[in-house]
Design a protein around this nucleic acid. Structure first.
Lengths: 216, 216
DNA sequence: AATAATTTTTAGATTTGTCTAAATTTAAAA
DNA sequence: TTTTAAATTTAGACAAATCTAAAAATTATT
């Protein structure tokens, strides 16, 4: 059994290792809002528990056991996000903080029943895949909107940025999950993208385009 | 903002003060699975925060502020219990431990939306009243089954014991919330009670009868 | 390759909630 | 009312998770 805090470390390490492996102390410290010294202490502890492989000054990797734990937390987080949006009418920019608490509730029965109640969703409200009980993800293929060429298009299937300001911005532009878009122009000057949604054209910055995921 | 632990103390003090006021240190220690010395420490802390009135050696009472906090936790606990039974098919003896964790999730929006989703339930799966947002309880009138005389009866509206073995026992006997019963005999020898439920007669011990609440 | 800059770790202190053992207060019994 | 028993509190220690400041290791730069 892990503590609330240990679970958070594992989850952060899991997410960060998708960007770079092994994960560095400072990267964790930044994400978890703490100091590097505290991270070092915790890494030693997690290492002793066999949840991570940690080499001084070199960084940290999840062991199989640690990865399974982390994925289980991600599973719970995403299931709760689905619950909040689909059943309690939360907006997609309101779910993160609450799910951050709910993900630590420890009851296998609860998770399985919730999954069933939600009819076994495959993705969360941001399009992120929900791992099954054994930790397997449905593999989703997508490209960043910023990689599309003129006249290419597809459906919005996810976002790679979960902050409330970003999501509210997309909402206002009508760029929600499932919406179909086509790129109509790419502005040389700033790389911003013009696209067609719902029969009308809008313009989004390159920065925004980078965080929208499209499947064809 | 209170910690998980502080919230638990307030909740326990709230429940115990329905039995005796002020609440004694040892009573709290027993319920919270800790030592009297630890309780003393926490009472001092809660007192400094203005959540309880604490007099050395005399016991403790909730302040208005403390009571409001406690009732809010009770509200959340009971709403989650309703959710678990009505939406996720938990049995009434399975909900307590999970609700014990869920009650500490801090989101007012979540609580209000959950309340709405459940269509503003007035009682939890054990018949305990659910306070509204302002801490007001619907007043329910009931008598212990053990106080009924022969030929008196009514509907089961609650239980005053929430342990899993007790609830499973009632389940097996068909004594669930809402069931109508009539007392047909009271055995002099051991005070056990014979009653009619669903057209057939069963016998329950006095101890069990004491914990079943009836409204006429 | 030597020096500078960055990253990471160690050492020692702090906070929260807990504990044991001893001391104190209150309540009960003789 | 004195003695005994029970309940409660104090004192000092401990574990978890964090922090600051200083030391050590790594990486980058000249």
């Amino acid at each position: 059994m892990q503590s609330f805090t240990e679970e958070n470390y594992l989850k952060i390490i899991y997410h960060l290792s998708e960007l770079s492996n092994p994960v560095q102390t400072n990267a964790i410290a930044e994400r978890i809002q703490t100091k590097a010294a505290s991270v070092t202490d915790m890494l030693k502890k997690l290492s002793e528990k066999g949840l991570v492989d940690y080499v001084k000054y070199q960084g940290v990797t999840l062991t199989a056991k640690g990865k399974l734990t982390a994925i289980n937390i991600v599973r719970k987080h995403r299931l709760w996000e689905v619950f909040l949006t689909q059943k309690l009418n939360f907006k997609w920019d309101e779910v993160h903080d609450v799910a951050e608490e709910l993900e630590h509730i420890t009851s296998d029965l609860l998770v399985e029943r919730l999954d069933e109640f939600l009819e076994f969703p495959k993705v969360d409200p941001h399009g992120d895949p929900i791992p099954d009980r054994d930790g397997n993800f449905a593999s989703l293929s997508f490209v960043k909107l910023s990689k599309l060429k003129i006249n290419e298009g597809g459906a919005i299937t996810g976002v790679s940025e979960h902050s409330s300001p970003f999501l509210k911005h997309l909402e206002k532009l009508g760029l929600t999950l499932g919406k179909k878009i086509v790129v109509t122009e790419i502005i040389d000057f700033d790389g911003s993208v013009e696209l067609k949604v719902d029969q009308h054209k809008i313009n989004i910055s390159r920065e925004v385009a980078k965080h929208i995921l499209i499947s064809k």
